[in-house]
């Protein structure tokens, strides 16, 4: 039975953050990640989905199963058409926050995952992509 290799979740209302968590949990678990890694991936996804909701209002999460040199990995892209991030390197610093203590959770999410990439353009939008690879 072939499992799904990609999908997406729309992020429009606060309740969609839970939907993101459920989908990511299901995908990561089916891929065979251990419980602690599943928790890390789901938590990072929750943070980034929340960012979309907080800063852009709405957006989408796309997920893909990656296969590279016999290893599999999960890739999540959080895409919005929001205001964009003026200074990406600034928000990647520990402790930087613009929304009264809420913070962007980017450094934290980066710690939970193997890879984190940010693309952003003022007035156009932001895409944050995270990846985690299954231990061989």
């Amino acid at each position: 039975m072939a499992a799904e290799e990609q999908g997406e979740v729309k992020i429009h209302v606060e309740g969609d953050i839970v939907a993101v968590r459920k989908v990511v949990r299901s995908v990561a678990t089916q891929m065979g990640f251990g419980i602690t890694d599943v928790t890390r991936i789901v938590t990072a996804a929750s943070e980034l989905a929340r960012n979309i909701f907080l800063y852009a209002g709405s957006g989408i999460m796309e997920w893909h199963v990656l296969r590279l040199k016999g290893r599999s990995g999960i890739e999540l892209s959080f895409i919005d058409l929001g205001p964009g991030i003026p200074n990406v390197s600034l928000v990647m610093q520990e402790g930087y926050t613009t929304s009264g203590g809420l913070g962007m959770g980017l450094p934290g999410s980066k710690r939970l995952m193997d890879e984190l990439d940010v693309w952003s353009e003022i007035g156009k939008g932001t895409t944050v992509t995270i990846r985690k690879w299954k231990k061989a």
Binding site: T36, V38, T39, R40, E47, G108, R111, L112
Partner: peptide
Amino acid sequence: MRPSVAITVTQLGL
């Protein structure tokens, strides 16, 4: 608190 949650909360710096 589940161990996996404790690990994640710590790594997130919460």
